[in-house]
Amino acid sequence: MLLIDRPIFYRDGRRFAHLISDVSLEELHQGARRLGLDRSFHRDHYDIPEDYVSAVIESGVHQVDPRDIVRALRRAGLRSAVPRG
């Protein structure tokens, strides 16, 4: 399942949310393509600009608390499986 948190991460004067899969990176990339995302992938998530979050949620992505993002990645083995750097 694809999950998104609230846009609380600041970069370049904008707020971003994190889009993840709690299943696989393949599911995440497929969902990102479906949503028209072709950039902003970072190790285990996509950064989603605040002004696009509502459209992502309307497409069926489930919104969760930001603390649940890392938990879901760890449960799926995606946080530790993806090398840093």
Rank of each mutant, 00 (worst) to 15 (best):
H62R: 14
I4K: 07
D51S: 09
V23D: 05
A81W: 11
L3Y: 03
L19S: 02
R34E: 12
R67Q: 08
V53Q: 00
A72G: 00
A76W: 09
D22A: 11
H18S: 01
R67S: 11
I69K: 04
L25A: 02
H62Y: 10
V53C: 01
R84V: 14
A76Q: 10
M1D: 00
F9H: 06
L78S: 05
H42L: 07
I8Q: 04
A76C: 06
V53R: 00
H29P: 02
A72R: 13
G77D: 14
D47M: 07
P66C: 10
Q63G: 04
S54W: 03
E50W: 09
S59A: 13
H42Q: 13
G36N: 12
R11N: 12
H62Q: 15
H18P: 02
I20D: 00
L25H: 09
V56K: 02
S24N: 04
S80Y: 11
R75T: 14
A72L: 10
D12C: 00
A72C: 09
P66E: 12
H42D: 14
R43I: 10
R84C: 11
D68N: 07
P66K: 13
V82C: 12
I20Q: 00
P83L: 09
A81T: 11
R43L: 08
L28C: 05
H18N: 06
L35N: 07
R79K: 14
S21R: 04
L73F: 11
A17G: 04
R11I: 06
I57H: 07
D65N: 03
H18D: 01
V53T: 00
Y52T: 05
R14F: 03
E26S: 05
I20W: 04
R79A: 15
R43Q: 02
D51Y: 12
M1R: 08
R33L: 13
V61F: 05
L78W: 13
R75V: 15
G77R: 12
I69Q: 02
A72S: 15
R75N: 14
L35F: 08
D47P: 07
A81F: 10
H18G: 03
L25C: 01
P66L: 14
H29D: 10
R84A: 15
D65C: 00
A17K: 08
P83E: 15
H42K: 06
S80K: 12
S21I: 04
L25P: 03
I57D: 07
L2C: 02
F16H: 12
P7S: 11
V70N: 06
L3N: 03
A72M: 08
P49E: 09
E50V: 02
H62F: 12
